[in-house]
Simulated assay, not measured.
Amino acid sequence: MTPFERRTRRAQARLVDAGADALALTPGRNLYYLSGVDTEPSDRLTLLVVPAEGDPTFVVPALDAASVRDATWVTDVRTWADETGPSPALDPLLDDLSPSHVLLADRMWTAVSLSLRDRLPEATVGLASEVLAPLRRLKDDRELDALRTAAEAADATMRDVRALGTGAVGRTEADLAAFVEDRLEAHGGTGIAFDTIVAAGPNGADPHHASGDREIRPGDPVVLDFGTRVDAYPSDQTRTVVFDGDPPAAFEAVHRVVAEAQAAGVAAAGPGVTTGAVDRAVRDVIEDAGYGDRFVHRTGHGVGLDVHEDPDIVAGGDVELEPGMVFSVEPGVYLHDRFGVRIEDLVVVTADGTERLNRTDRGWRL
């Protein structure tokens, strides 16, 4: 049994518990998670229907049938032609299934969702995440291996960034971002997991700054947030460094507070600990230092096929951590028009604590 089939069978057991008859998934991370088919949504319908019992069925455009069959363990692949549309393949499948409650892909195009609801007027609908999110929180060995390898590519890239030393001064944020992306590929990654953030000087006070044409200057704190993918799984690491010169007043103190908060969050995590307790451990350090109102986002987020997925490490979160969960711990302090500091590692929950997936130097000095 492939990992994809094992996940599908676990999802079917959860369908029964949820009182649902079927999952209906269009292209996206959840479809890949169950089938192994990695494709983009298009105007031609691709749909995976997973019943609560029995085997799943793909409905795909005829021109994509060969690639789908090569990629998946699913044996029932029904095709449709442009001149007929999907109805000849889809309608008999839905008629045979006659679901009373079906869970749709959370990010299904509205046009597809409305079409399915027209075809199933008596059925109620819900979201596939009701069943799949709890499964995807717990990574299997294959997923953890990919996440570790992606993290190693990010670590190696950060070492290359540090090795630039004063040579980074005078480069634009966009130029340094391009360097980062080149090194991620050189170290075995595939593309970028998200838009690379290089935020120099006051731009670092914007947590989601888009790398631009500002040149890095002596004394600039530079926030670098980047990642790549390995076998579809991402890395996500943030460091804040100064390439040359003396940083602004208060920077060293703020960086020390953020580093202590990040360490406190990692230390607090473990089996049975709630996500809210991890957030609280981080936030206490920053609040005690007087920067509570400058920590403007959650402590972290789950990481898997999506860079941001369950569970959120957020104030009041009540999800209990379990071995196999992977998430970021990324506190930040942002001082408007001055600078920002963020430090981020991915961690995996183990039987007795956590394992950091990122191991590079967290200090600001090169």
Rank of each mutant, 00 (worst) to 15 (best):
L116K: 00
R137E: 15
A133F: 10
E130W: 08
L120N: 13
D160M: 12
A174D: 05
V112N: 11
S115T: 03
S115D: 15
A153F: 00
V125G: 01
P121D: 07
A151D: 03
G165A: 14
A174E: 01
T110W: 13
R183Y: 02
F179Q: 03
A111T: 10
A154H: 00
A178H: 00
T157I: 05
V161C: 02
V169N: 10
S115Y: 14
E181T: 01
A146K: 00
A128D: 14
G126S: 07
V131K: 02
T166M: 11
R171T: 11
T166D: 14
V169F: 09
T172Q: 09
A163I: 05
A146N: 03
R119N: 13
R137A: 06
I192A: 10
K139E: 02
R119E: 09
V112E: 12
G170E: 05
D141Q: 12
A163R: 10
G126R: 09
E173H: 04
A186Q: 03
E181I: 03
R119V: 07
H187D: 01
V161D: 06
K139F: 01
I192S: 13
L138T: 12
A128W: 03
A177V: 06
D175M: 08
G165Y: 08
L164S: 04
V131D: 01
G167P: 06
L138E: 12
A133G: 00
L164K: 04
H187R: 06
E122K: 12
L138C: 06
D145P: 02
R171F: 07
A150S: 07
R162K: 09
L144R: 08
A163T: 11
L116S: 07
R148D: 05
L120E: 01
F179H: 03
R137H: 08
E130S: 15
E122T: 11
E181V: 06
A146G: 10
L147V: 02
A186E: 07
M158L: 14
L176M: 08
E130C: 01
G167W: 04
M158I: 12
T110S: 12
G189R: 01
E185H: 14
R171D: 05
A186L: 14
